[in-house]
Simulated scan of single mutants.
Amino acid sequence: MTVVGYVPGAYDLFHVGHLNILRRARPDCDVLIAGVVTDETVLRAKGKPPVVPLVERLQIVASIGFVDQAVVDTSTDKRVMWERLHFDVLFKGDDWKGTEKGALLESSMASVGVRVVYFPYTAHTSSTSLRALLARQLT
């Protein structure tokens, strides 16, 4: 049986944390799909648009050797993408683990037989911290 893994994310200001989750997910599945969230979805979820536009974020993620396929992810509800891709395991950073949004994700995915696997969040580097650093440099 082929195991399909899915790693959703904004992948804005691509950094080592993004690379780490893709690298760690690769050995746990036969096919790795990265879902790159749309600009509009990022804006709704985070309250600010991504710095790098969707088409460029998609090209960056698609070029990573660990990724078999990069797709546009249009919803914060991962069941929407599961309906389209029928993945077996969903990978997230462990900043979601033990949170309300993580519990909702786990419950939603369990209802269709999908495992949620958490990997260590790269706390010292994030798009949020890079954005803040850039803002300080520009002022």
Score class of each variant (00 low, 15 high):
Ala70His: 03
Tyr121Gln: 11
Arg79Cys: 12
Val7Ser: 06
Arg57Glu: 03
Val3Lys: 15
Met81Tyr: 08
Val72Ala: 08
Ser63Tyr: 00
Asp68Tyr: 02
Pro50Gln: 05
Ala135Gly: 09
Phe14Arg: 00
Val7His: 04
Tyr118Gly: 07
Asp39Glu: 08
Val55Glu: 15
Phe119Gly: 07
Arg44Cys: 11
Gly5Cys: 03
Leu54Gln: 14
Val71Asn: 03
Met109Tyr: 01
Glu106Arg: 02
Leu134Gly: 02
Gly9Glu: 01
Gly17Asn: 04
Glu83Trp: 09
Pro120Arg: 12
Gly5Ile: 00
Glu106Asn: 05
Gly93Cys: 01
Arg44Glu: 15
Thr99Gly: 04
Ala34Asn: 01
Phe66Lys: 09
Ala110Leu: 09
Val16Ile: 14
Phe14Gly: 02
Lys97Ala: 14
Lys92Ser: 09
Thr74Cys: 13
Glu83Ala: 15
Val61Phe: 02
Val52Met: 11
Val4Phe: 01
Val114Arg: 09
Lys92Thr: 04
Asp94Tyr: 07
Ile60Met: 08
Glu100Asp: 12
Leu32Gln: 05
Thr38Phe: 07
Leu54Phe: 10
Ser63Gln: 02
Glu100Gly: 05
Leu32Asp: 05
Arg44Lys: 15
Leu22Ala: 02
Ala70Thr: 00
Gly5Lys: 06
Val52Trp: 02
Ala123Ile: 14
Arg136Ala: 13
Pro120Asn: 10
Asp94Val: 10
Glu56Arg: 13
Gly65Lys: 12
Thr2Tyr: 08
Thr128Gly: 03
Gly113Ile: 12
Thr2Arg: 12
Tyr121Met: 08
Asp39Asn: 11
Gln59Phe: 12
Ser126Asn: 07
Lys92Glu: 09
Val61Lys: 00
Asp68Pro: 04
Ala103Pro: 03
Gly17Ile: 04
Val72Asp: 08
Asp12Leu: 01
Asp28Tyr: 15
Leu58Phe: 00
Leu105Glu: 09
Leu32Glu: 05
Leu105Tyr: 05
Ala34Ile: 06
Arg84Glu: 14
Ser75Gly: 10
Val117Met: 09
Leu32Met: 02
Phe14Met: 03
Arg136Lys: 13
Leu54Lys: 11
Gly93Asn: 09
Asp39Met: 06
Ser129Val: 10
His18Glu: 04
Phe66Pro: 10
Val89Ala: 08
Lys101Arg: 12
Val114Leu: 08
Leu138His: 13
Pro53Lys: 05
Phe91Val: 02
Gly93Ile: 01
Gln69Asp: 11
Ala62Ile: 06
Ile33Gln: 06
Pro8Phe: 01
